[in-house]
Design a protein around this nucleic acid. Structure first.
Length: 422
RNA sequence: GGAGAGGUGGCUGAGUGGCUGAAAGCGCUCCCCUGCUAAGGGAGUUUAUAUGGAAACAUGUAACGAGGGUUCGAAUCCCUCCCUCUCCGCCA
């Protein structure tokens, strides 16, 4: 969430920012400012009454100590009205504070000035392209390849769990594991600390990274134990330091974490969900950074470059999009998407999303650092996929297939797989 | 899952109704002393929030696992929940 102070000082920018992000109305900005004023007024009032009743309580204590019971009784009588007032006002205050908080949670992050303003996919800017998209017509989509060899078992996945929960069999399982290892190793070489995280999180964590209240329908819920299945490692890893004050010297904090990810993807259908394109469970290696505010945009660039280098090493053509305001989501201030070329489908597939959240997540989760001796400041948080597995697998299967049907192993993975063909 | 014990500041650990936002020790920071990598002395050392202030800071309020209750007044009493530890059971 945004800082109320920031909202007040940049009212028009925040309002415009909401419209840019595709919100239908921005009246919330005025409403929250008004609510905040009401809240402040009431805080003062309540504090005054509390001050008074604290003073009386102290007097009573003193008198009791001296054995002056009657005088004490007199003051106790005076406090009954105060007591009622406090109770009533505290109730009001609680409601106001909650309303104010809920409003704040519903105001999206404001995009960075470098972000193109727009509402549709077409408004995204192509930031960079690498490699030549292969247009050879004989290339088959990955689902034909995997079906021919029985490398991905969708049917049994349906039997065992449901649509979108496939089994990976033999060589593709092996390929996926190799990629995970490769990605983690590369991140390790780049100074990221490896983390293994819980796959379920509680409500506070989901709120911390912004899945709640904006996107709760994307997550699977385990109601009996009040857990959410993580939609990305971003959630547990960023929350790792929730409610902490880090020291300036430990920043930037950089983590790499491999996890499965679960997404309900309600309402998705059609060609998008064919094969491995869109699943309810998929694997991903995620990078998370916690940094000082003044460095967060440099850190975003290095994050993006790291992910791009992985695709380059795999020799997979890709393009990098700078997402427009309307296509980037509620919590981000700037986001790049990496899309790999899928030669069997003749289309781009998103395999990474690198975002800077500035202090938006940090404020929600009270993730701060001590600047210098005394000052406490919100950190900035970032994350990026490096990379999402199934679509990389698709791209590899399609790009490395030969006309005879065999699939080569990418050079950088040979050490993990131990042979030249899958 | 059963039985019991417990959750206090960066750590250890006092504190069973008012003088405790919290003793003491350790750690840490700054200063002083000391001619040497020892020792000693002094000061400081939770956070959130409101108000005032350019700021340093000052004042108020809140917080001793979380939430509720009793009371003029709660870290201290009561209730619910969460978590940790010990023993038993179960188990990869």
């Amino acid at each position: 969430m945004l800082d109320i102070q920031f909202i007040k000082e940049n009212k028009e920018a925040v309002k415009q920012g909401m419209l840019n992000k595709g919100e239908k109305s921005n009246s919330l900005v005025d409403e929250v400012i008004e609510k905040d004023e009401q809240w402040r007024t009431l805080v003062q009032k309540v504090d005054e009454i509390r001050t008074e009743s604290n003073a009386k309580a102290k007097q009573i204590g003193a008198l009791m100590g001296q054995g002056k019971k009657e005088e004490a009784q007199a003051i106790i009588a005076e406090t009954s009205q105060l007591k009622e007032d406090v109770k009533e006002l505290e109730e009001e205050l609680k409601v106001l504070a909650e309303e104010r908080e809920n409003m704040l949670l519903k105001i999206p992050n404001v995009a960075h000035p470098s972000v193109p303003i727009g509402s549709k996919e077409e408004d995204n800017e192509t930031f960079d392209t690498w490699g030549e998209p292969n247009k050879e017509e004989w290339r088959k989509p990955h689902w034909e390849i995997t079906e021919r060899y029985g490398w991905v078992d969708f049917e049994r996945g349906v039997k065992v769990t449901g649509a979108g929960f496939p089994f990976y069999v033999g060589p593709v399982a092996q390929l996926q594991r190799a990629l995970i290892n490769y990605f983690i190793n590369e991140a390790g070489n780049a100074g990221y600390t490896e983390l293994q995280a819980p796959y379920f999180v509680n409500e506070d964590s989901a709120r911390g990274t912004g899945q709640i209240p904006d996107k709760e329908d994307m997550m699977y819920v385990i109601p009996r134990d009040e857990f959410f299945a993580i939609p990305t490692a971003e959630v547990p890893v960023t929350n790792f330091h929730r409610d902490e004050i880090l020291s300036e010297s430990e920043l930037p904090v950089k983590y790499v974490c491999y996890t499965p990810c679960w997404r309900r993807e309600a309402g998705s259908y059609g060609k998008d969900v064919r094969g491995l394109n869109r699943l309810h469970q998929f694997d991903k290696v995620e990078l998370v950074k916690i940094v000082k505010p003044e460095t967060s945009y440099e850190e975003l660039e290095s994050l993006r470059e790291h992910s791009e280098k992985l695709l380059q090493a795999l020799e997979l053509p890709y393009r990098t999009l700078l997402m427009c305001t309307g296509d980037m989501g509620f919590t981000q201030s700037k986001k790049y998407d990496l899309e790999v070329w899928s030669p069997g489908q003749q289309r781009w597939l998103e395999v990474s999303s690198c975002s800077n959240f500035e202090s938006f997540q940090a404020r929600r989760m009270q993730l701060r650092y001590r600047k210098g001796e005394k000052k406490i400041e919100m950190t900035h948080t970032l994350n990026g996929s490096a990379l999402a597995l199934p679509r990389v697998v698709s791209a590899i299967l399609e790009a490395y297939q030969e006309e005879n049907g065999k699939v080569r192993v990418p050079e950088v993975l040979k050490g993990f797989i131990g042979r030249d063909y899958l």
